[in-house]
Nucleic acid binder design. Structure first.
Length: 722
DNA sequence: AGCACGCCGACT
DNA sequence: GTCGGCGTGCTC
């Protein structure tokens, strides 16, 4: 008797459930994709079950087609996606959609499919028998087809070899198959000698059996990357694949170059959002077919199928960019740890300033702590961090005399200076010194930022953009002046103060053009720039051998934030910029201008002692029952009227009345108005995970069923910013 | 999220 | 007269 077959499909729609379809013909495995009718549209979805149980739904429709271009997602990737959908209370189909390359979310088959396949002759003798004895090239190809052969390899035999293969395929002598799953194994090029601490760390990683989370805590310049490289060499020698996550796309090229130099001939795949669709699919397939030995990528790479995964590395694990800020708000760091657990492999988290979550896990023994205290680069010395109190100092355009003197002497000795601006909450706005008018956005509760070069005022949140007014709109005064010191203002001030110096500004605006950042970095390396002015992006990864002095202008703004994580972020950021100085044999000097030089925060910073800072922070968090000692989520709401957003949040709070969670009073968000929408949120907290999860599941299910009118809402589990 | 259906204002 | 505004309802 022929039983009917059904498939359960995860579709990319904002609904928490999966959808069942009748499978009339063809074969499909769990983890493959199918194209199905959905309402009036046709969508691609991932198959989560194939079964014979009649689904209890009013209307059942049939699978439209099985493209067959995407290899089935392995069970650990499926389990990871399911976990994320549950943990982040995010629609399951949307999680799967995020986990696979864009080409496989289309209803059409991936156009590069044919070229990515290989061909094999199941019976070479039969194929040879069908060929003319004089067709030497064909016979040579037939012999090669004993092993699966990629299209490029077939084309290399003869220009029209693919035509022969298609003929043979029609007569069943050759079949299409996936490329053979043999990863190249190659010895790494000579590795530098390790110091004792590095050697101990590598030995610990290599000795780890099964799931073993490790936190590699090492100051800037202590050689964390070398530990990764040597641990990966051992992983590769054992025939396993390594997954390496990096925070940002800008950092991949550098690290990729270092990996390629160390592992020549190795198939290294780099996966990030800047990749063209085809490239991403090819890399993803190479990883999933086991041909790639090392996968290097940004957060979405955490979902890459890896049949022989042996080690997971998360570099700069504290970095905020591991967290997706929009839509599917997941933490790739946490997902990587969960994945390592699913696959029962070691996971190495590295940082000079670990997240307090990881620090606590290490303190409580859940993560093994591997510490690198010494600088590995010979001759490198830690930078000398000095605080420059400015509450009574004479200031020249935002710079204290002391700092200017230090800059002058550094420049006189032909050293480079970096002026770092902590831009968070500190933008150059235009103000009227007569009546106090300040340029603000029509749609947001943000200030319009002055872009001097273009003579425009621009909102960094919604893109609202106007010409700089000639006079104050309120009182007509013509003397409008910038307030605060944005990068452009600082650049202008420095050009005036140091007319002989070459000032280079590196920020989002000046590097927007493709290749601009690379060109600027080249100028810095070539010594063509004397003073660099920059924001966050300067702090990350880039090495500036000539840099001798770092000046931090307005660190304090992060010190008194409503966001309890602001100090943690500021510490990481300042230590990271400090690390830019003095890496090439000369000790660097870091000057931090501050109104609050006595603040305990700066004690630990000047000592470069993250452990002291982290321990103090954890003590405080514990006493206040803040994360990581409590489970937090934020319910965010946006509406045209603030009152509707607040009403929605109050209603949601009442829904959770019976749950062992605490819902804080809804408050307007820090940026209360954005692009014409009023924003508010409510913190939902619990002393343990399970009750929080249960509450979030209820909320998500309730509002998916009955969408609130006029209110956009989102859940943010383990929120990082407020 | 799409994509329909549905019932009110200014245009060929 | 109808083109189109976006409110709300549904999708196996």
């Amino acid at each position: 008797m022929l039983t009917e077959r059904y498939v359960t499909v995860a579709l990319d729609v904002p609904l928490p459930q999966c959808f069942d379809y009748l499978l009339l013909q063809g074969e499909v495995a769990v983890g493959e994709r199918v194209v199905v009718p959905f309402g009036r549209q046709t969508l691609s979805g991932v198959v989560l079950a194939v079964h014979g149980e009649t689904p209890q739904v009013a209307k059942l429709r049939a699978v439209e087609s099985i493209p067959g271009d995407m290899p089935a997602l392995p069970s650990d990737v499926i389990a990871l996606c399911r976990f994320c959908a549950d943990y982040y209370a995010y629609p399951i189909g949307a999680v799967f959609a995020a986990a696979i390359p864009g080409a496989f979310r289309q209803a059409q088959p991936w156009p590069g499919f044919e070229a990515a396949m290989a061909y094999v002759a199941p019976d070479v003798e039969a194929l040879l028998a069908a060929l003319s004895p004089r067709a030497h090239k064909q016979r040579a190809l037939a012999l090669q087809l004993a092993q699966p052969l990629a299209v490029e390899a077939i084309r290399a035999v003869a220009g029209d070899a693919m035509r022969w293969v298609r003929d043979w395929q029609e007569s069943g002598l050759v079949v299409q198959t996936r490329q053979s799953a043999v990863a190249l194994q190659c010895a790494p090029s000579a590795s530098p000698a390790l110091n004792d601490e590095q050697a101990a760390a590598v030995a610990a990683v290599n000795a780890a059996q099964g799931y073993s989370p490790m936190l590699l805590y090492g100051i800037t310049g202590s050689g964390k990357t070398e530990v990764y490289l040597q641990a990966i060499a051992a992983t590769r020698a054992a025939g396993h694949q390594a997954l390496v996550l990096v925070p940002e796309i800008n950092l991949t090229p550098q690290l990729e170059a270092r990996f390629r130099a160390r592992f020549p001939g190795e198939h290294i795949v780099s996966l990030h959002s800047g990749l063209a669709d085809g490239e991403r699919v090819r890399g993803w397939l190479a990883a999933g077919e086991g041909r790639a030995g090392i996968v290097l990528g940004t957060r979405l790479a955490v979902f890459t199928p890896l049949p022989r995964l042996g080690l997971v590395v998360v570099d700069e694990e504290h970095d905020p960019s591991y967290r997706q800020a929009e839509g599917f708000r997941y933490s790739a760091r946490d997902a990587a740890v969960y994945r390592a657990r699913l696959r029962d492999v070691p996971v190495l988290l590295g940082s000079a300033t670990p997240s307090l979550e990881s620090w606590r896990n290490a303190q409580e023994g859940r993560y093994r702590l591997l510490t690198l205290r010494q600088r590995a680069v010979s001759g490198a010395m830690p930078p000398k961090i000095e605080l420059v109190p400015i509450q009574r100092a004479r200031m020249v355009d935002g710079f204290s005399e002391y700092v200017l003197a230090a800059m002058r002497s550094t420049l006189a000795a032909s050293g480079q200076v970096l002026v770092f601006i902590n831009r968070r909450g500190y933008a150059p706005v235009l103000s009227c010194h007569e009546c106090g008018w300040i340029s603000s956005c029509k749609h947001c509760s943000a200030k319009l930022v002055l872009h001097l070069a273009e003579r425009r005022l621009r909102c960094h949140h919604c893109g609202y953009d106007i010409r700089v007014p000639l006079a104050c709109p309120d009182c007509g005064n013509h003397d409008l002046k910038p307030l605060g010191h944005g990068t452009q203002r600082v650049e202008a001030v420095l050009a005036e103060l140091f007319p002989d110096a070459n000032v280079l500004r590196i920020d989002r605006d000046s590097t927007r053009r493709r290749g601009a950042l690379g060109e600027m970095l080249r100028q810095v390396h070539a010594g063509e720039a004397d003073i660099l002015v920059g924001t966050q992006m300067m702090a990350k990864g880039h090495d500036f051998p000539g840099l001798q002095l770092v000046v931090v202008l307005n660190a304090d703004t992060g010190l008194f934030s409503v966001d309890f994580r602001a100090e943690e972020r500021l510490f990481a950021q300042l230590l990271q910029v400090a690390g830019r100085a003095g890496r090439a044999g000369k000790p660097g000097r870091v000057l931090i201008q501050s109104m609050y030089a006595e603040h305990p925060f700066y004690h630990a910073l000047v000592a470069g002692d993250y452990a002291e800072f982290a321990d103090a922070q954890l003590t405080e968090r514990r006493s206040l029952a803040l994360p990581p000692y409590a489970a937090w989520a934020v319910l965010r709401a946006e509406a045209k009227q603030l009152a509707s957003a607040l009403d929605f949040l109050r209603e949601a709070a009442s829904l959770l009345a019976g749950y062992p969670v605490h819902v804080a009073t809804p408050v307007p968000a820090a940026m209360a108005r954005k692009a014409g929408w009023e924003r508010a949120h409510a913190v939902i907290s619990a002393d343990a995970r399970p009750p929080l999860q249960a509450a979030l599941r209820l909320l998500a299910a309730h509002y998916a069923e009955a969408a609130p009118r006029g209110v956009r809402w989102a859940l943010d589990v383990d929120p990082q910013e407020f």
